[in-house]
Simulated assay, not measured.
Amino acid sequence: MRDKSKIKLTKEKKEEMISLIKNYFLNEREEELGDLASNLMLNFIIEELAPEFYNQGVYDSYKYMNDRTEDLLSIQIY
């Protein structure tokens, strides 16, 4: 993603996500990840994976709105 449209998180949300990553690795892989490793993992997800999910959400929203707009034509009076 371009820097101006990069996903931005509040400090609290980022800390929550880092905690979730640490808990995931501990519970699912029995590995303890530190703050640095979890932060790097989160940054990778944000920079490399999140744009695909974001773009899918944009497309789904576009499709939904386009379908609803088409429905408006059904209320025309002839």
Results as ranks from 00 to 15, higher is better:
40 L>Q: 02
20 L>H: 10
64 Y>E: 15
22 K>Y: 01
19 S>P: 11
74 S>T: 02
50 A>N: 12
44 F>N: 07
24 Y>M: 01
46 I>S: 03
40 L>N: 04
66 N>V: 12
22 K>P: 00
38 S>A: 06
15 E>W: 01
49 L>P: 12
23 N>I: 03
76 Q>M: 07
65 M>H: 15
10 T>P: 00
14 K>Q: 01
36 L>P: 10
10 T>R: 00
74 S>C: 00
77 I>N: 06
69 T>Y: 15
43 N>E: 03
58 V>H: 13
62 Y>Q: 08
14 K>F: 00
73 L>Q: 06
77 I>Y: 06
69 T>S: 15
53 F>C: 06
17 M>V: 09
69 T>V: 15
20 L>K: 15
33 L>A: 01
25 F>C: 03
2 R>D: 15
29 R>W: 03
3 D>Y: 05
61 S>Y: 08
41 M>E: 02
2 R>Y: 11
7 I>A: 07
26 L>R: 02
21 I>V: 00
68 R>D: 13
45 I>M: 12
13 K>P: 04
45 I>P: 04
27 N>I: 04
11 K>L: 15
8 K>Y: 05
78 Y>R: 12
35 D>K: 15
31 E>N: 11
57 G>N: 01
50 A>H: 10
25 F>Y: 03
71 D>G: 10
61 S>G: 05
24 Y>Q: 04
60 D>I: 13
76 Q>G: 04
71 D>K: 10
66 N>S: 14
62 Y>C: 04
38 S>N: 02
8 K>D: 09
47 E>G: 08
67 D>E: 04
56 Q>C: 13
40 L>F: 02
20 L>A: 14
52 E>K: 13
78 Y>S: 09
39 N>I: 14
1 M>W: 00
20 L>V: 15
54 Y>I: 14
49 L>N: 07
37 A>S: 03
54 Y>F: 12
26 L>A: 11
39 N>E: 14
31 E>C: 10
15 E>S: 03
53 F>V: 06
1 M>P: 00
22 K>E: 01
35 D>P: 12
16 E>I: 00
31 E>F: 12
38 S>D: 04
39 N>C: 14
60 D>M: 12
31 E>A: 13
13 K>L: 13
29 R>M: 10
13 K>C: 10
70 E>D: 13
23 N>L: 03
48 E>C: 08
26 L>D: 06
29 R>Y: 07
77 I>E: 07
68 R>V: 15
1 M>L: 00
10 T>C: 00
32 E>W: 00
64 Y>W: 11
23 N>M: 03
43 N>A: 11
51 P>Y: 05
26 L>P: 04
62 Y>E: 05
11 K>E: 15
78 Y>L: 11
64 Y>G: 09
8 K>C: 08
37 A>V: 02
20 L>Q: 14
